[in-house]
């Protein structure tokens, strides 16, 4: 139930801790599943120096909300969160954080997985990589 799209450095572990501190689910939760995606310095056999992530403001948040709510209907989870970067990124920078809290691990794993997989095909983000041969748009899922 928390979606943020930010253009400042993403600090996933701080985000998770800060979110948990605002929740009153202590005792109800037996599992927190956290996925953090970070930027590689290579893609399709080419060295990538940096990257710019473009997105469609408003639609991005709307789509991420829809995906998270779908996960919450399919599995029994207490809470979920997504934080996604846009703007300029360097290799090893965190790009995306997905977390799901549940009574049991199976539900938390499934919901977290669903959110990241759906995000990659539906959330309107586009990667433009800076390589040794100039800038290129990533045209397919990697």
């Amino acid at each position: 139930m928390s979606v943020r799209v930010i253009d400042t450095p993403l600090e996933p572990w701080r985000e998770v801790a800060a979110f948990e501190a605002t929740q009153k689910f202590a005792g109800k939760v037996g599992a927190a599943c956290v996925f953090v995606g970070t930027m590689r310095d290579y893609n399709q056999d080419t060295t990538v120096r940096s990257m710019v992530l473009e997105h469609y403001p408003a639609m991005t948040e709307r789509e991420l909300e829809a995906i998270g709510n779908e996960a919450a209907r399919k599995w029994t989870i207490e809470k979920w969160m997504v934080v996604h970067r846009h703007g300029a990124l360097q290799p090893s920078d965190p790009i995306v954080l997905v977390a799901a809290w549940s009574g049991h691990r199976e539900q938390a794993f499934a919901a977290c997985r669903y959110i990241i997989e759906a995000l990659k095909t539906r959330a309107p983000f586009w990667k433009q990589e800076q390589t040794e041969n100039g800038a290129r748009w990533v045209e397919r899922q990697t």
Binding site: G37, T38, M39, L53, H55, Y56, A58, M59, R62, H84, I95, V96, I116, L119, K120, T121, R122, A123, P124, F125, W126, K127, W137, V138, E139, R140, Q141, T142
Partner: peptide
């Protein structure tokens, strides 16, 4: 701001966007 097919009707005040396949996440 919702996915649509090419044939979807549009009207005054709508916002229509065109973009390549998305490549977010990591």
């Amino acid at each position: 701001q919702e996915y649509a097919q090419p044939g979807q009707a549009v009207r005054d005040g709508d916002e229509v966007a065109f973009f390549p396949p998305v490549t977010g996440g990591a």
